[in-house]
Amino acid sequence: MALNTPQITPTKKITVRAIGEELPRGDYQRCPQCDMLFSLPEINSHQSAYCPRCQAKIRDGRDWSLTRLAAMAFTMLLLMPFAWGEPLLHIWLLGIRIDANVMQGIWQMTKQGDAITGSMVFFCVIGAPLILVTSIAYLWFGNRLGMNLRPVLLMLERLKEWVMLDIYLVGIGVASIKVQDYAHIQAGVGLFSFVALVILTTVTLSHLNVEELWERFYPQRPATRRDEKLRVCLGCHFTGYPDQRGRCPRCHIPLRLRRRHSLQKCWAALLASIVLLLPANLLPISIIYLNGGRQEDTILSGIMSLASSNIAVAGIVFIASILVPFTKVIVMFTLLLSIHFKCQQGLRTRILLLRMVTWIGRWSMLDLFVISLTMSLINRDQILAFTMGPAAFYFGAAVILTILAVEWLDSRLLWDAHESGNARFDD
C-alpha cells in the first residue's frame, strides 16, 4: 500500500549564491595573561575582544583620537594649579581661619623630617597626573615632529594605576569627618577644581587605549598563520617573532617567553612588605597634641575612634588600611606557593584573586592621604596640633611594595603550573 505524501511548494523562490571570495581570516594573537594562541577576527570600533580561555580583555573598544586626548590633557593642565594650590577646605580653629590644600599637606610631611613619605604622596597625587598630561601632550606634538614615541607609550600603561586623584578625593571626605570634632569646616574653591580634575582624569584614563596608539604610530604586520613560536610582548602586546637582537619589532624591548626574574622580584617585594606591615600596624601612625597632652593612634585605634562619629567612614578606612593590605599579602603568598608547588586545582579562583588584588591594591594609600591633609588643617603649635607617627613611612612603603609585587608577577606562570593543553579552566 503506497502512502500519498503531499508536496510542499515554497511560496518564495530560494536563491543560492556561491561564495565568490575567501572568507576573511583572523590574525593570530597570544593572550598576555595566559599565553593562549588564538585567531582574533577583525574588530570594529566600539567592540571589545576577550581571550577565549581566561576571559582577559585583549582589545578595548573604547578609543579616543589623539586630538581629543590632547584637549583633555590641556584642560587638566589648566585645572591643576587651582586643584593643588587653592584651598580645598576652610576650618575655623580657636577663632582663626585655616586653609588646607594639597601642596601644603605634602610640605608639612616633608617639613617634619619625613621627606620619603611626603614624596610618596607627591608622586601619586601630583607627579603621576602631571606625567600623564605631559605624556599625552608629548605624543600629540611628537607625532607631528617625527619624534620617538616608544618610551612614552611604554610608560603610559604602567602609569595608570599610580594616578590616585580619586583616592585622594575620598581622603578629603575622611579628613573632614575627623577634623569636624575640633573645628567648623567649609569647602574651599580649590575643592571644585579638584573634583573637576578627578572627573576629567577618570574619563581620560578610561578612554586612553595605549594598544590602539601603538597600532597608529607603529603598525606591524600581524601573524596570519598559526605558529607556536609566536611570542607576545608584555610592553606593547604585539604578537610576532623577535628581531635579530631578540627584541620586539614594535617597542624594541627584549621579547622573552616569560617575564625575567618574575618570581624572585615578586618574592622579594612580598617578604619586604610583610616585614614592614608589622611596625606599620604596631607603631603610632598619627599623633595629636591637645592642650599640651599627647595622644597617639595606631591604624586600628584611629579607626575605632573614627567609628564613634561615623561608622560608615570608619568601615571604608578599615577596608583600605587593614583589610586590603593583608588580603593582598595572603593572596600573593598563596599564588606564589601554588606556582612553586605546581598546583593544578582552583586555577579559576587564583586568576580571579590576582585580578582582584590588581584592582584594589592602590586604595591602601588612602590613610597616607588623610594624614597629609589633616596635617595641613590642624597645626596650632602646642594648643592643638596633628602630626604623623613613625608607622606612616612603614605603611606607605608596604603598600608600594605590594603594588610592585602584583605588577611583577607574570600571570602566565600560573598556567605553566597548571596542566598543559587546557582550553578551559575551572575549579
Rank of each mutant, 00 (worst) to 15 (best):
T5A: 06
P6C: 05
P24T: 07
D27Q: 09
D27H: 10
D27A: 08
Y28G: 08
Y28R: 11
Q29V: 06
C31Y: 00
P41H: 07
P41A: 06
N44P: 02
H46A: 07
A49K: 07
Q55Y: 06
K57M: 10
D60N: 05
D60R: 07
W64G: 06
L69R: 08
A70M: 13
A71N: 03
M72D: 04
F74N: 04
F74R: 01
T75F: 04
M76H: 05
F82H: 06
W84K: 08
W84I: 08
W84P: 04
G85C: 04
G85R: 10
E86Q: 03
L88Y: 02
L89W: 03
H90I: 04
L93Q: 01
L94P: 00
G95R: 08
R97D: 02
R97Y: 02
N101M: 01
N101I: 01
V102W: 04
I106P: 05
M109S: 10
Q112P: 14
Q112I: 07
Q112C: 07
D114L: 06
A115P: 12
A115Q: 11
A115D: 15
V121W: 05
I126P: 13
I126H: 07
G127A: 11
L132W: 14
V133C: 08
V133M: 12
T134G: 12
L139E: 02
W140K: 07
F141R: 01
L145Q: 06
G146A: 06
M147D: 01
L149S: 12
R150P: 01
V152A: 08
M155F: 03
K160M: 14
K160I: 08
E161Y: 09
V163W: 02
M164G: 03
M164V: 02
D166F: 15
I167R: 03
L169E: 02
I172L: 13
V174E: 00
V179E: 00
Q180E: 09
A183P: 00
G188S: 09
V189N: 14
L191E: 07
L191C: 12
L191I: 07
S193D: 03
A196P: 05
L200W: 13
L205H: 13
H207G: 15
N209P: 12
E211N: 14
E215F: 11
E215N: 12
R221Y: 13
R221W: 14
A223N: 12
T224N: 13
R226N: 14
D227G: 13
E228G: 14
K229Q: 14
R231I: 14
L234Y: 15
F238Y: 12
F238C: 12
R245P: 11
R247H: 10
C248M: 00
R250W: 08
H252A: 06
L257I: 13
L257H: 13
R258D: 07
H261L: 10
S262K: 04
L263N: 11
Q264L: 04
C266H: 04
L271W: 12
A272D: 01
A272W: 02
S273I: 06
S273C: 13
I274T: 13
L278I: 11
L278A: 14
N281G: 05
I285G: 01
L290D: 00
N291A: 15
R294S: 04
E296N: 14
D297Y: 02
I299Y: 01
L300M: 15
S301T: 11
G302Y: 00
L306W: 00
N310V: 05
A314V: 13
A314L: 10
A314C: 12
I316Q: 00
V317M: 01
V317A: 04
V317L: 02
V317N: 00
I319G: 15
S321M: 02
S321Q: 04
L323S: 10
L323H: 04
V324H: 10
V324G: 10
P325D: 09
K328V: 00
T334S: 10
L335W: 03
L336Y: 07
S338A: 14
I339Q: 09
I339C: 10
H340I: 09
Q344W: 13
Q345M: 14
Q345K: 15
G346L: 15
R348H: 11
T349A: 11
R350N: 11
I351S: 12
W359T: 15
G361C: 08
W363Y: 14
W363Q: 03
M365C: 04
M365V: 04
M365K: 09
F369M: 06
S372K: 10
L373C: 02
T374W: 02
T374G: 02
M375L: 06
M375T: 11
S376T: 14
I378R: 00
I378K: 00
N379F: 01
N379K: 10
N379W: 01
N379V: 03
R380W: 03
R380K: 02
F386M: 01
M388I: 05
G389R: 02
G389C: 01
A391G: 06
A392R: 00
F393Q: 07
Y394D: 11
A397G: 11
L401K: 12
T402I: 03
I403E: 00
L404N: 14
A405Q: 04
V406R: 01
V406E: 04
D410C: 00
S411T: 11
L413Y: 11
L413K: 12
L414W: 07
D416K: 12
S420H: 07
N422W: 06
A423T: 15
F425I: 14
D426P: 02
D427L: 15
